[in-house]
Simulated assay, not measured.
Amino acid sequence: MSKVTLEGFILVPSSDLQAVTRELVNHKKLTLEEPGCLVFKVQQHSENPLRFDVYEEFVDRSAFDRHQERVKSSYWGAVTKNVTRHYQIIE
């Protein structure tokens, strides 16, 4: 199996910005602790505070899929339900 990389950004509605920013620290910590997570970076854009650039690497598709499932049922999943995701996934 090959490594899976996700790269792109999310756009956060201004009404959700505070909750997303607050929960991001926990989301990063939990993701980096996941088996198979190699790299996980989410950074607020310097010129647009509603944009967060995202870069993730997982050892394989199975690890990536487990991450996606965890996120769906997490608090992060709840606070980011209104964000617009712009991702490219490379295998």
Rank of each mutant, 00 (worst) to 15 (best):
M1G: 15
M1I: 08
S2C: 07
S2W: 04
V4N: 14
V4Q: 07
T5A: 02
L6D: 11
L6M: 10
F9W: 15
F9R: 08
I10D: 10
L11C: 03
L11F: 12
V12N: 03
V12K: 02
V12T: 08
P13C: 05
S14H: 14
S14G: 09
S14A: 10
S15L: 06
S15G: 02
S15F: 09
S15K: 14
S15I: 14
S15C: 08
L17E: 13
Q18M: 13
A19I: 02
A19N: 09
V20I: 13
R22P: 09
R22S: 11
E23F: 03
E23M: 03
L24V: 11
V25M: 03
V25R: 12
V25H: 15
N26G: 01
N26L: 10
N26W: 02
H27I: 04
K28H: 09
K28P: 06
K29W: 07
K29V: 03
K29S: 04
K29A: 12
L30C: 03
T31C: 12
T31K: 12
T31N: 12
T31W: 13
T31S: 15
L32P: 10
L32M: 13
E33H: 13
E33T: 14
E34Q: 09
P35Q: 05
G36D: 08
G36N: 02
C37Y: 04
C37W: 06
C37V: 13
L38W: 00
L38P: 03
V39W: 02
V39P: 06
F40S: 00
F40K: 00
K41P: 07
V42Q: 04
V42E: 12
Q43G: 14
Q43H: 05
Q44D: 05
E47S: 15
E47N: 06
E47V: 12
N48Y: 09
N48Q: 13
P49Q: 15
P49Y: 07
P49S: 11
L50Q: 13
R51E: 05
D53E: 11
V54N: 07
V54T: 06
V54A: 04
Y55N: 05
Y55I: 09
E56T: 00
E56M: 07
F58D: 06
F58N: 01
F58E: 01
V59Y: 10
D60L: 00
D60F: 04
D60S: 05
R61A: 11
R61F: 06
R61H: 03
F64P: 11
F64W: 12
F64E: 14
F64I: 11
R66Y: 04
R66H: 13
H67P: 05
H67Q: 12
Q68A: 13
E69H: 08
R70Q: 07
R70T: 01
V71L: 10
V71A: 09
K72G: 03
K72E: 13
S73N: 03
S73P: 03
S74P: 04
S74Y: 05
Y75V: 10
Y75K: 13
W76P: 03
W76V: 00
W76R: 00
G77N: 14
G77L: 15
G77V: 08
A78T: 11
A78N: 04
V79G: 01
T80Q: 14
T80D: 09
T80W: 07
K81E: 15
N82Y: 05
V83E: 01
T84Q: 15
T84I: 06
T84P: 10
R85H: 11
H86I: 02
Y87M: 15
I90F: 09
E91F: 00
